[in-house]
Computed example of a mutant assay.
Amino acid sequence: MFNFDVGHILVDTSSSVSVMFAEAFSALQVPDNMINRSITNLVSFFGDVVQPIRSIHLPIAVSLAPHWGYAYHLIFLILDCPTTFNVILGRLALA
Rank of each mutant, 00 (worst) to 15 (best):
V49H: 03
N86V: 03
V50G: 06
S44R: 10
A22L: 15
V50T: 14
I75K: 15
V19N: 05
L89N: 06
T13G: 07
S18I: 07
A22K: 14
M1K: 11
F21N: 00
Y70I: 12
S18R: 09
N86E: 06
N36P: 00
F85I: 03
S16C: 12
P82F: 12
N3K: 13
L28G: 07
P82L: 14
A95Y: 02
S55Q: 15
V17A: 03
S63A: 09
V43H: 05
P59H: 02
P59C: 02
A65L: 05
H73W: 08
A61F: 00
L92K: 15
F21R: 00
G90E: 01
H57G: 00
A27S: 13
L42G: 02
R91G: 04
A22V: 11
V50W: 06
A27E: 13
H8D: 14
P31V: 06
V6Y: 05
V19Y: 07
I9M: 05
A22P: 00
S63M: 08
S18C: 12
Q29I: 01
A24S: 13
L10F: 08
P31H: 13
F46E: 10
F45L: 12
I88Q: 02
S26L: 11
L92Q: 15
I78P: 00
L58R: 10
C81Q: 14
Q29C: 06
A61S: 10
T83G: 09
M20V: 15
L64Q: 13
I9K: 04
V43K: 15
T84W: 04
S15L: 08
E23Q: 14
G90N: 01
M34C: 03
P52N: 07
G7K: 14
D48R: 12
T13S: 15
A61D: 01
Y72G: 05
V50C: 12
R54H: 03
S15R: 10
G47S: 09
S26N: 14
Y70L: 12
P52I: 03
D80H: 09
F21A: 01
I39Y: 10
F45Q: 05
V30M: 07
S18Y: 05
M20A: 10
L10M: 09
D5M: 08
V6Q: 08
V30C: 07
M34E: 09
I56L: 06
R37Y: 15
Q29T: 02
S16T: 14
F21L: 10
R54I: 00
L10S: 01
L28M: 15
I56W: 05
N33F: 10
A27Y: 05
P52A: 07
F46N: 12
I9L: 10
A27N: 14
Y72R: 10
C81S: 11
N33K: 09
G47N: 11
I60F: 08
